[in-house]
Write a protein that binds this DNA or RNA. Structure first.
Ligand SMILES: [Zn+2]
Ligand SMILES: [Zn+2]
Ligand SMILES: [Zn+2]
Ligand SMILES: [Zn+2]
Lengths: 134, 134
DNA sequence: ATCTTGTTGGAAACGGTTTTCGTTGTAAAG
DNA sequence: CTTTACAACGAAAACCGTTTCCAACAAGAT
Protein backbone atom coordinates (compact mmCIF):
# COMPACT_ATOMS: atom_id res chain seq x y z
CA UNK A 1 0.00 0.00 0.00
CA UNK A 2 1.41 3.33 -1.02
CA UNK A 3 1.43 6.05 1.58
CA UNK A 4 -1.79 8.01 1.85
CA UNK A 5 -2.52 11.62 2.64
CA UNK A 6 -3.85 12.18 6.18
CA UNK A 7 -7.55 13.07 6.31
CA UNK A 8 -8.09 12.19 2.66
CA UNK A 9 -11.29 10.15 2.31
CA UNK A 10 -10.12 8.51 -0.90
CA UNK A 11 -6.75 7.28 -2.07
CA UNK A 12 -6.45 7.83 -5.77
CA UNK A 13 -3.83 6.77 -8.26
CA UNK A 14 -3.03 10.44 -8.95
CA UNK A 15 -2.23 11.26 -5.33
CA UNK A 16 -0.03 8.21 -5.08
CA UNK A 17 1.85 9.36 -8.19
CA UNK A 18 2.47 12.82 -6.74
CA UNK A 19 3.62 11.36 -3.43
CA UNK A 20 5.91 8.88 -5.18
CA UNK A 21 7.52 11.68 -7.18
CA UNK A 22 7.98 13.86 -4.11
CA UNK A 23 9.79 11.00 -2.42
CA UNK A 24 12.28 10.81 -5.28
CA UNK A 25 13.18 14.46 -5.80
CA UNK A 26 15.54 16.19 -3.42
CA UNK A 27 14.96 19.90 -4.00
CA UNK A 28 12.27 22.55 -3.93
CA UNK A 29 10.34 22.51 -7.20
CA UNK A 30 7.36 24.38 -8.62
CA UNK A 31 4.00 22.70 -9.19
CA UNK A 32 4.57 23.00 -12.93
CA UNK A 33 7.98 21.38 -12.76
CA UNK A 34 6.52 18.47 -10.82
CA UNK A 35 3.69 18.19 -13.33
CA UNK A 36 6.13 18.08 -16.24
CA UNK A 37 8.04 15.30 -14.50
CA UNK A 38 4.82 13.35 -14.09
CA UNK A 39 4.03 13.84 -17.77
CA UNK A 40 7.53 12.68 -18.67
CA UNK A 41 7.05 9.45 -16.76
CA UNK A 42 3.56 9.06 -18.19
CA UNK A 43 1.90 9.19 -14.80
CA UNK A 44 -1.22 10.81 -16.26
CA UNK A 45 -1.98 13.41 -13.60
CA UNK A 46 -3.55 16.75 -14.50
CA UNK A 47 -1.92 20.03 -13.54
CA UNK A 48 -5.00 20.98 -11.53
CA UNK A 49 -4.68 17.82 -9.48
CA UNK A 50 -1.00 18.48 -8.86
CA UNK A 51 -1.88 21.89 -7.43
CA UNK A 52 -4.70 20.45 -5.34
CA UNK A 53 -2.62 17.58 -4.00
CA UNK A 54 0.28 19.83 -3.09
CA UNK A 55 -2.02 22.16 -1.18
CA UNK A 56 -3.50 19.16 0.60
CA UNK A 57 -0.03 18.00 1.61
CA UNK A 58 1.02 21.46 2.76
CA UNK A 59 -2.10 21.68 4.94
CA UNK A 60 -1.31 18.25 6.36
CA UNK A 61 2.25 19.31 7.15
CA UNK A 62 3.65 16.65 4.84
CA UNK A 63 5.17 19.14 2.44
CA UNK A 64 7.02 22.43 2.94
CA UNK A 65 6.31 25.43 0.75
CA UNK A 66 8.41 28.52 0.20
CA UNK A 67 8.82 31.22 -2.41
CA UNK A 68 11.72 32.54 -4.42
CA UNK A 69 12.27 36.29 -4.07
CA UNK A 70 10.59 36.53 -7.47
CA UNK A 71 7.43 35.06 -5.98
CA UNK A 72 7.26 31.57 -7.54
CA UNK A 73 5.92 29.03 -5.08
CA UNK A 74 8.08 25.98 -4.43
CA UNK A 75 7.27 22.65 -2.80
CA UNK A 76 9.36 20.00 -1.11
CA UNK A 77 8.87 16.96 1.05
CA UNK A 78 11.39 17.55 3.85
CA UNK A 79 13.07 14.92 5.99
CA UNK A 80 11.84 16.48 9.21
CA UNK A 81 8.56 17.90 10.33
CA UNK A 82 10.09 20.08 13.04
CA UNK A 83 10.54 23.79 12.41
CA UNK A 84 13.58 24.42 10.24
CA UNK A 85 14.83 26.59 7.41
CA UNK A 86 16.33 26.05 3.97
CA UNK A 87 19.37 26.77 1.89
CA UNK A 88 18.06 26.58 -1.67
CA UNK A 89 19.81 26.61 -5.05
CA UNK A 90 18.13 29.11 -7.35
CA UNK A 91 18.96 27.11 -10.49
CA UNK A 92 18.20 23.48 -9.62
CA UNK A 93 16.26 23.69 -6.36
CA UNK A 94 18.76 21.54 -4.45
CA UNK A 95 18.07 22.09 -0.76
CA UNK A 96 19.87 21.80 2.54
CA UNK A 97 17.72 21.78 5.65
CA UNK A 98 19.24 23.98 8.33
CA UNK A 99 18.50 24.67 11.97
CA UNK A 100 19.51 27.85 13.78
CA UNK A 101 18.60 27.84 17.45
CA UNK A 102 20.39 31.14 17.96
CA UNK A 103 18.37 32.73 15.17
CA UNK A 104 15.15 31.39 16.65
CA UNK A 105 16.00 32.97 20.00
CA UNK A 106 17.07 36.22 18.33
CA UNK A 107 13.80 36.52 16.40
CA UNK A 108 11.66 35.92 19.50
CA UNK A 109 13.80 38.32 21.52
CA UNK A 110 13.44 41.04 18.87
CA UNK A 111 9.68 40.63 18.73
CA UNK A 112 9.35 40.66 22.53
CA UNK A 113 11.53 43.75 22.83
CA UNK A 114 9.09 45.67 20.62
CA UNK A 115 5.99 44.34 22.30
CA UNK A 116 4.94 41.99 19.50
CA UNK A 117 3.08 38.78 20.33
CA UNK A 118 1.82 35.79 18.38
CA UNK A 119 5.14 35.79 16.54
CA UNK A 120 6.19 33.76 13.51
CA UNK A 121 9.01 34.24 11.02
CA UNK A 122 10.21 33.32 7.55
CA UNK A 123 13.89 32.75 6.77
CA UNK A 124 15.34 31.28 3.62
CA UNK A 125 18.81 31.44 2.12
CA UNK A 126 19.15 31.37 -1.67
CA UNK A 127 22.28 30.84 -3.69
CA UNK A 128 23.95 28.84 -6.45
CA UNK A 129 25.04 25.37 -5.43
CA UNK A 130 28.53 24.06 -6.21
CA UNK A 131 27.23 21.84 -9.03
CA UNK A 132 25.36 24.67 -10.74
CA UNK A 133 28.26 27.12 -10.31
CA UNK A 134 30.28 25.17 -12.90
CA UNK B 1 12.73 70.82 -5.13
CA UNK B 2 11.11 67.43 -4.59
CA UNK B 3 13.41 64.53 -4.10
CA UNK B 4 14.47 62.79 -7.31
CA UNK B 5 15.16 59.17 -8.14
CA UNK B 6 18.87 58.37 -8.56
CA UNK B 7 19.86 57.58 -12.17
CA UNK B 8 16.56 58.87 -13.51
CA UNK B 9 17.23 61.21 -16.45
CA UNK B 10 13.96 63.02 -16.00
CA UNK B 11 12.03 64.09 -12.95
CA UNK B 12 8.36 63.84 -13.71
CA UNK B 13 5.30 64.94 -11.77
CA UNK B 14 4.22 61.28 -11.51
CA UNK B 15 7.42 60.16 -9.83
CA UNK B 16 7.24 63.04 -7.42
CA UNK B 17 3.68 62.03 -6.53
CA UNK B 18 4.71 58.44 -5.79
CA UNK B 19 7.68 59.58 -3.70
CA UNK B 20 5.52 62.03 -1.79
CA UNK B 21 3.01 59.32 -0.96
CA UNK B 22 5.71 56.90 0.12
CA UNK B 23 7.05 59.50 2.52
CA UNK B 24 3.65 59.72 4.21
CA UNK B 25 2.71 56.08 4.67
CA UNK B 26 4.05 54.01 7.54
CA UNK B 27 3.71 50.34 6.66
CA UNK B 28 4.28 47.95 3.77
CA UNK B 29 1.69 48.38 1.01
CA UNK B 30 0.98 46.81 -2.38
CA UNK B 31 1.42 48.70 -5.65
CA UNK B 32 -2.34 48.65 -6.12
CA UNK B 33 -3.00 50.05 -2.66
CA UNK B 34 -0.58 52.89 -3.35
CA UNK B 35 -2.24 53.51 -6.72
CA UNK B 36 -5.66 53.69 -5.12
CA UNK B 37 -4.34 56.21 -2.61
CA UNK B 38 -2.99 58.32 -5.47
CA UNK B 39 -6.36 58.15 -7.20
CA UNK B 40 -8.07 59.15 -3.96
CA UNK B 41 -5.92 62.27 -3.71
CA UNK B 42 -6.37 62.95 -7.42
CA UNK B 43 -2.68 62.68 -8.17
CA UNK B 44 -3.40 61.32 -11.67
CA UNK B 45 -0.73 58.63 -11.92
CA UNK B 46 -1.34 55.47 -13.94
CA UNK B 47 -1.03 52.04 -12.35
CA UNK B 48 1.66 51.13 -14.86
CA UNK B 49 3.71 54.12 -13.79
CA UNK B 50 3.29 53.20 -10.12
CA UNK B 51 4.72 49.75 -10.84
CA UNK B 52 7.57 51.20 -12.90
CA UNK B 53 8.44 53.85 -10.35
CA UNK B 54 8.41 51.36 -7.48
CA UNK B 55 10.74 49.06 -9.42
CA UNK B 56 13.04 51.99 -10.11
CA UNK B 57 13.10 52.84 -6.42
CA UNK B 58 13.71 49.24 -5.42
CA UNK B 59 16.62 49.03 -7.87
CA UNK B 60 17.99 52.30 -6.51
CA UNK B 61 17.73 50.97 -2.96
CA UNK B 62 15.31 53.73 -2.02
CA UNK B 63 12.45 51.34 -1.35
CA UNK B 64 12.28 47.92 0.28
CA UNK B 65 10.17 45.13 -1.12
CA UNK B 66 8.97 42.00 0.62
CA UNK B 67 6.21 39.46 0.27
CA UNK B 68 3.53 38.17 2.56
CA UNK B 69 3.52 34.38 2.96
CA UNK B 70 0.63 34.47 0.48
CA UNK B 71 2.91 35.94 -2.18
CA UNK B 72 1.65 39.53 -2.52
CA UNK B 73 4.48 41.99 -3.11
CA UNK B 74 4.72 44.87 -0.67
CA UNK B 75 6.67 48.12 -0.81
CA UNK B 76 7.92 50.51 1.81
CA UNK B 77 10.28 53.45 2.00
CA UNK B 78 12.51 52.59 4.95
CA UNK B 79 14.53 54.96 7.09
CA UNK B 80 17.79 53.33 6.15
CA UNK B 81 19.21 52.12 2.87
CA UNK B 82 21.55 49.57 4.42
CA UNK B 83 20.55 45.92 4.46
CA UNK B 84 18.09 45.21 7.25
CA UNK B 85 15.01 43.18 8.09
CA UNK B 86 11.50 43.86 9.35
CA UNK B 87 9.23 43.12 12.24
CA UNK B 88 5.76 43.59 10.78
CA UNK B 89 2.37 43.72 12.49
CA UNK B 90 -0.05 41.40 10.74
CA UNK B 91 -3.08 43.54 11.60
CA UNK B 92 -2.01 47.13 10.90
CA UNK B 93 1.21 46.75 8.92
CA UNK B 94 3.23 48.77 11.42
CA UNK B 95 6.89 47.99 10.81
CA UNK B 96 10.03 48.02 12.92
CA UNK B 97 13.33 47.94 11.05
CA UNK B 98 15.76 45.54 12.67
CA UNK B 99 19.41 44.68 12.10
CA UNK B 100 21.03 41.39 13.06
CA UNK B 101 24.75 41.24 12.32
CA UNK B 102 25.01 37.83 13.94
CA UNK B 103 22.25 36.49 11.69
CA UNK B 104 23.97 37.91 8.61
CA UNK B 105 27.18 36.13 9.54
CA UNK B 106 25.34 32.93 10.33
CA UNK B 107 23.55 32.91 6.96
CA UNK B 108 26.74 33.49 4.99
CA UNK B 109 28.57 30.90 7.06
CA UNK B 110 25.84 28.31 6.41
CA UNK B 111 25.88 28.96 2.66
CA UNK B 112 29.68 28.82 2.46
CA UNK B 113 29.82 25.61 4.46
CA UNK B 114 27.63 23.92 1.84
CA UNK B 115 29.44 25.35 -1.16
CA UNK B 116 26.76 27.86 -2.16
CA UNK B 117 27.77 31.13 -3.84
CA UNK B 118 25.96 34.27 -4.97
CA UNK B 119 24.06 34.14 -1.70
CA UNK B 120 21.11 36.23 -0.58
CA UNK B 121 18.48 35.69 2.09
CA UNK B 122 15.02 36.70 3.17
CA UNK B 123 14.05 37.13 6.81
CA UNK B 124 10.89 38.68 8.12
CA UNK B 125 9.22 38.46 11.50
CA UNK B 126 5.43 38.75 11.70
CA UNK B 127 3.41 39.31 14.83
CA UNK B 128 0.76 41.40 16.52
CA UNK B 129 1.94 44.77 17.79
CA UNK B 130 1.17 46.00 21.29
CA UNK B 131 -1.45 48.44 20.04
CA UNK B 132 -3.32 45.80 18.06
CA UNK B 133 -3.08 43.24 20.88
CA UNK B 134 -5.49 45.33 22.96
C1' DA C 1 10.94 77.73 -29.99
C1' DT C 2 12.51 73.43 -31.49
C1' DC C 3 14.38 69.00 -31.01
C1' DT C 4 15.54 64.68 -28.89
C1' DT C 5 14.29 61.01 -26.44
C1' DG C 6 12.87 59.37 -21.85
C1' DT C 7 8.26 58.78 -19.89
C1' DT C 8 3.44 57.96 -19.66
C1' DG C 9 -0.88 55.16 -19.56
C1' DG C 10 -4.70 52.48 -21.52
C1' DA C 11 -5.07 48.22 -23.62
C1' DA C 12 -3.46 43.88 -24.30
C1' DA C 13 -0.55 40.21 -23.07
C1' DC C 14 1.43 37.32 -19.71
C1' DG C 15 2.20 33.53 -16.22
C1' DG C 16 1.04 31.23 -12.29
C1' DT C 17 -2.82 29.63 -9.74
C1' DT C 18 -7.75 28.81 -8.76
C1' DT C 19 -12.45 27.90 -10.06
C1' DT C 20 -15.99 25.76 -12.78
C1' DC C 21 -18.59 21.93 -13.91
C1' DG C 22 -19.54 17.70 -16.31
C1' DT C 23 -17.30 13.12 -15.98
C1' DT C 24 -14.88 9.44 -13.64
C1' DG C 25 -14.00 6.06 -10.28
C1' DT C 26 -13.27 5.01 -5.28
C1' DA C 27 -15.14 2.82 -1.52
C1' DA C 28 -18.89 1.59 1.27
C1' DA C 29 -23.41 -0.41 1.58
C1' DG C 30 -26.70 -3.84 0.16
C1' DC D 1 -21.14 -8.74 -7.27
C1' DT D 2 -24.07 -4.71 -7.96
C1' DT D 3 -25.64 -0.56 -6.58
C1' DT D 4 -25.09 3.90 -4.83
C1' DA D 5 -23.10 8.20 -3.13
C1' DC D 6 -20.11 11.57 -3.63
C1' DA D 7 -14.95 12.54 -3.53
C1' DA D 8 -11.84 13.47 -6.92
C1' DC D 9 -10.46 14.38 -11.60
C1' DG D 10 -9.19 17.48 -15.46
C1' DA D 11 -9.80 20.51 -19.53
C1' DA D 12 -11.22 24.91 -20.14
C1' DA D 13 -12.17 29.24 -18.41
C1' DA D 14 -11.65 32.61 -15.03
C1' DC D 15 -8.74 35.10 -12.11
C1' DC D 16 -5.26 38.44 -10.53
C1' DG D 17 -1.07 40.74 -10.04
C1' DT D 18 2.34 42.30 -13.01
C1' DT D 19 4.66 43.33 -17.48
C1' DT D 20 4.77 44.67 -22.24
C1' DC D 21 3.22 47.35 -26.24
C1' DC D 22 3.04 51.50 -28.59
C1' DA D 23 1.26 55.98 -29.84
C1' DA D 24 1.01 60.37 -27.50
C1' DC D 25 3.30 63.33 -24.35
C1' DA D 26 6.64 66.33 -22.06
C1' DA D 27 11.39 67.23 -19.58
C1' DG D 28 15.66 69.06 -20.48
C1' DA D 29 19.04 70.56 -23.88
C1' DT D 30 20.34 73.77 -27.58
ZN1 LIG E 1 22.04 23.87 -8.12
ZN1 LIG F 1 12.97 29.56 12.43
ZN1 LIG G 1 -0.58 46.55 14.73
ZN1 LIG H 1 19.95 40.01 6.36
Amino acid sequence: MTQAIPNAPRNTRQRAEVLALLREVEGFLTAQQLHQMLVAREARVGLTTVYRTLQLLVDAGEVDSTRLPGGEQLFRRCGQSRHHHHLVCRQCGRTVEIAGPAVERWADEMAARHGFTDVQHTLEIFGTCAACAR
